[in-house]
Design a protein around this nucleic acid. Structure first.
Length: 576
DNA sequence: GCCGTTTTCGGCCCGACTGTTTTCAGTCG
């Protein structure tokens, strides 16, 4: 069982304990441990064996015992006992808006409700309104919540969230009563997937502003509407929270509503340690003296910290960096000089070589790396060796026509076959400027076989970079089982780069492994995997992920000038 | 259950909104 699966079980255990009515701090300890475990990149088995797991914050002796059991056998005595006592259908009830552990416990104790189906039946039969502490409105809310769960997914991709929030943000910023406004929450932190949309404004007329927002056409349901906070459901099913504060409060509120939750807790604890109290409204000392902060940077400064960019605010080491004055200068989209891993109509792309190159030039880029599919990817129009040579000739011609002002790099997205060999012989691979090696088949191999397959592939001297290393599709498909830690080590050893596949559907590498790879000296390439000219814009999502991983421009291949990029592309084959 | 730059015991972030209550508990972020 891997770290992520174990983290999910610890989360479930924490929730079941809440429903049982345990000490809330003990319950939270399980959630904290789960959260820590999710950012672990090292080999879990090793950490269990040598006891280093307890060095991770939030994991003590007791948690380690449970994690060790789960890691080796996939089971844990206490979890099994909990599942017997409390049906796991109760966990699904936590997803119903308005229901928490306390209410779920009451529902189970009074009506023996232990599943979503039980709940719907009881609410439909009007049994819930009579329970002490509940009522008609709560019952209606539960039914609405159940309908919502039926129709909407729980999280959305970043580009979906952006599409929904952009017109609202525009309306907010143009509202006459608004002084400052900003996107907050996980979208501002550029998290891989988004739960809801958060918008903050400063204004002197909060009630009027919130009333205007509540009346907007895309609002289909008001979830909560107070003097400073409005929570609505939009017609696409997404929840949007809008908060209004005074302009003096704005930086504090911006910091607070950007999160993450763990980052906020660390911030408040830091304030307490300095005899201060931090909230979304200000920073005060015990005697009530307020510290004036004009922007977020002032808040960090007041707590003895350098500014921490939103993408790093996950409490995964950013405080130590900030204290040490070592927050890196994070990569920005303007740093990109071009990009690799793009498809054309030679395989399954929509646009021609010329159109793709022109789109890249329009973005101010100096080069574009084309990598259509290799022959094994027949479903995607993979290129035969003859076609490859034909494309090379075409690219040579185009490059000549650009007169040195722009360059197309000849590449291929070469399938890694089941045995770890590549889809073309080395003599053909040698003719490309770069080779992206990816898995598109054989997802069913077991953990060890998949790991050796990938390691064998990156050991090929012509493989420049590894493409979408886990094959995951966000919210749709988990990655294949693989020891990424070992694969990253193999890349570091062989001088193979790894791509951040910047497609918002993939974002593969994930953040913790991207950080790990960079720390081990692996060069990262931010690749849009574009299948059309507009797909080139997806580099933006890759930049977001790179920033979350703490990468600066010099750790990313496609920020260098054309000459340096060529050198880097050749460095692996030149050294072997 | 975890943790220690005042603590190995006694804390553990904190405020808005809602619905059900007669002053507050639960949920949410």
């Amino acid at each position: 069982m891997n770290a992520e699966q174990i983290a999910d079980i610890l989360d479930d255990m924490g929730t079941l304990l809440e429903i049982r009515g345990e000490n809330p701090f003990r319950c939270r300890a399980y959630h904290n441990a789960a959260s820590s475990l999710k950012s672990v990149t090292g080999n879990l088995a090793t950490m269990v064996a040598d006891g280093t797991l307890t060095e991770i914050p939030g994991i003590g002796a007791s948690m380690m015992t449970k994690i060790a059991q789960l890691a080796t056998s996939g089971q844990c005595t206490e979890y099994e006992a909990l599942k017997v006592e409390l049906p796991t259908g109760l966990l699904d009830l936590m997803r119903v808006p308005g229901l928490g552990a306390k209410k779920i416990k009451v529902l189970r104790d009074t009506l023996n409700i232990t599943s979503v189906a039980d709940l719907r039946k009881a609410a439909t039969e009007n049994l819930i309104a009579d329970i002490k502490g509940f009522g008609a409105k709560t019952q209606t809310k539960i039914l609405e919540g159940l309908d919502f769960l039926d129709t909407a997914g729980t999280r959305m991709l970043q580009h979906t969230a952006r599409k929904i929030v952009t017109p609202i943000l525009k309306a907010v910023s143009e509202h006459p009563d608004v002084i400052r406004s900003s996107l907050c929450g996980s979208l501002r932190r550029r998290a891989e997937t988004i739960g809801d949309l958060d918008i903050l404004v400063s204004t002197n007329h909060p009630q009027q502003f919130l009333a205007d927002m509540a009346a907007r056409p895309e609002v289909v349901q008001i979830i909560a509407h107070g003097d400073t906070k409005l929570s609505v459901r939009l017609n696409q099913g997404a929840q949007c929270d809008i908060r209004a504060v005074t302009d003096a409060q704005f930086p504090f509120a911006l910091n607070y509503f950007t999160g993450s939750k763990l980052h906020n807790i660390a911030m408040r604890k830091r304030a307490i340690a300095r005899g201060l109290k931090l909230s979304e409204y200000g920073l005060e000392s015990d005697d009530g003296t307020a510290t004036v902060c004009r922007d977020e940077a002032d808040i960090y400064k007041a707590l003895g910290l350098d500014y921490i960019p939103p993408e790093l605010r996950e409490d995964t080491g950013e405080f130590a960096l900030s204290e040490a004055g070592a927050i890196p200068k994070l990569i920005e989209t303007q740093d990109l000089t071009g990009c690799f891993h793009n498809h054309t109509d030679w395989s399954d792309g929509d646009h021609t070589l010329e159109q793709m190159a022109e789109a890249a030039m329009t973005k101010g880029w100096k080069y574009l790396g084309i990598s259509d599919h290799s022959r094994a990817a027949a479903y995607a129009g993979g290129l035969s060796i003859e076609k490859v040579q034909e494309q090379w000739a075409k690219i040579d011609k185009l490059n000549e026509s650009y007169g040195g002002k722009f360059r197309i790099y000849k590449g291929i997205e070469c399938d890694i076959l089941t045995d770890g060999s590549l889809d073309y012989p080395d003599e053909v691979l040698a003719g490309f400027d770069f080779v992206v090696a990816s898995i598109h088949s054989g997802f069913g191999l077991d953990h060890d076989a998949q790991t050796s397959r990938l390691i064998k592939a990156v050991e090929n001297r012509y493989v420049t970079m590894l493409g979408h290393p886990t094959g995951r599709l966000l919210l749709a498909r988990a990655g294949y089982p693989v020891d990424l830690d070992a694969v990253i080590s193999a890349c570091a050893r062989t001088g193979t780069m790894i791509e951040i596949n910047a497609s918002p559907y993939r974002l593969d590498l994930d953040t913790p492994h991207c950080r790990l790879a960079a720390q081990r000296g692996v060069m990262i390439s931010i690749n849009p995997d574009a299948h059309a000219i507009y797909g080139l814009d997806d580099v933006e999502y890759g930049v977001g992920l790179a920033r979350r991983a703490g990468l600066s421009a010099d750790q990313v291949l496609n920020t260098f000038d054309d000459q340096k990029v060529s050198e880097l592309l050749n460095s692996k084959r030149d050294r072997t």
